[in-house]
Amino acid sequence: MKQQTIDELIVELREELIKQLNLEDTLPEGFDENTPLFGEGLGLDSIDSLELVVLLDRNYGIKLKDPKEGRHVFQSIRTMAEYIAKNRPQV
């Protein structure tokens, strides 16, 4: 697994999120890596967070055991990128 930088991860995650969660038509103005994914920001829900859990596993080999852990990891694209950089299996 190649080890991207945080910035590279941010670009990659943005693409993946839009694709996996069908966000093309619903991105709010000014959406960026700091926009909150849940609540007021992007408005994702609990099912999206399950999709994100699988995305972490499939794309980065990271397993979240407890869905509640996701609340911290999935705050924004940046927090996701940072979490991935810190927790992905080292090659």
Partner: peptide, 9 residues
Amino acid sequence: YINPIQMRR
């Protein structure tokens, strides 16, 4: 008939 946020999934 359907709003885009709902349509998404």
